[in-house]
Simulated scan of single mutants.
Amino acid sequence: MPELVIRKDIDGIAILSLNRPEALNALSPSLFVELHDHVTEIYGETEKVGCVILRGEGRSFSAGNDLKAMQAGEKAPHPFFQAETVEMIEGLPQPVIAEVQGHCYTGALELALACDLMVCSENAKFADTHGKWALTPLWGMSQRLPRRIGAMNAKEMMFTGRVVSGAEAFEIGLVNKCVPDSDLSEATLTMARAIVENSWHTLRADKMLVNKGQDYGLKDGLMFERENSPGRAAGKEERLSGFKKD
């Protein structure tokens, strides 16, 4: 049986690819088990992995939750396993980039929203279709989508279920970049390489401070930063001494 999630490492970048292209990478419980295992491994590899890319094989990132698997009675290890796996991705010490082409619907959008950054192709299609199936969010849609694009835009997507194009996703701040279809993988890898060129110590600190700082108002957030910023890393002086202005 082929792997449902494939890992490839390039120069400190771990690339995780959802590998059910024949099913538009539908998110079955079995796929989530493999994804969970990969994410768990990457948690312990902060000296080996500086950035993570999450993508899908074939023509789609993912069409969303696997309704056929649900109808067939396939079960995750426990009721909140998928939601906890999404939270693990959000909680990875390393920055995570979602590389999105084609469909990114509902559960797949919840998965992508757990990533720190998102690059999409012009053919990308984003939608929250919970309402079309009389389902309600369990993997973070109601919390992460409004934080990403604002409550009004999020409510429109959630209430109507309409499809948002790659270009519009960029306009409303859902993604960082929208690029031609043929440029997607290279554009994402270029962003990842720019990230890993910086201090991995700083990357991990920045992600922690920004993510946890969102739980506070400005005054308390400033205090949180002062009290929790880890300070200089060994070797910082060498990095500074080698810095040159363009």
Rank of each mutant, 00 (worst) to 15 (best):
K8D: 14
I13K: 07
A14I: 01
I15N: 15
S17E: 08
L18F: 07
E22K: 10
E22A: 12
L24A: 07
L24P: 00
A26Y: 04
P29R: 14
P29D: 11
F32M: 15
V33I: 08
L35Q: 08
D37E: 14
T40R: 08
T40W: 00
G44E: 15
K48L: 04
V49K: 14
R55V: 05
G56C: 09
S60T: 15
S60K: 09
G64R: 15
M70E: 10
E74K: 12
E74M: 08
F80D: 14
F81T: 02
Q82T: 14
Q82P: 02
Q82M: 12
Q82K: 07
V86R: 06
E87I: 07
Q94V: 10
P95V: 10
E99T: 09
G107N: 08
G107Y: 09
L111S: 08
L111E: 06
L113N: 06
C115V: 12
M118N: 03
S121C: 11
N123W: 03
A124S: 06
K125E: 11
D128C: 10
H130N: 14
W133H: 12
W139L: 13
G140Q: 12
M141P: 02
M141N: 09
R144V: 01
L145K: 08
L145D: 14
L145E: 11
R147L: 06
G150R: 14
N153Q: 13
A154W: 05
M158C: 04
T160C: 03
S165I: 07
E171P: 00
I172P: 00
I172M: 13
V175W: 02
V179I: 04
V179S: 04
S182N: 10
D183Y: 08
S185Q: 09
I195W: 03
N198Q: 11
S199T: 06
W200G: 02
H201P: 00
D206C: 04
D206A: 12
K207G: 01
M208P: 02
M208W: 05
V210T: 04
K212F: 13
Q214D: 07
D215V: 01
D220T: 12
L222H: 12
L222M: 15
N228F: 03
S229K: 09
P230C: 11
P230N: 10
P230A: 11
R232I: 04
A233K: 04
A234F: 02
G235I: 04
G235F: 03
G235N: 10
E238H: 06
R239M: 08
R239L: 10
F243D: 02
D246G: 01
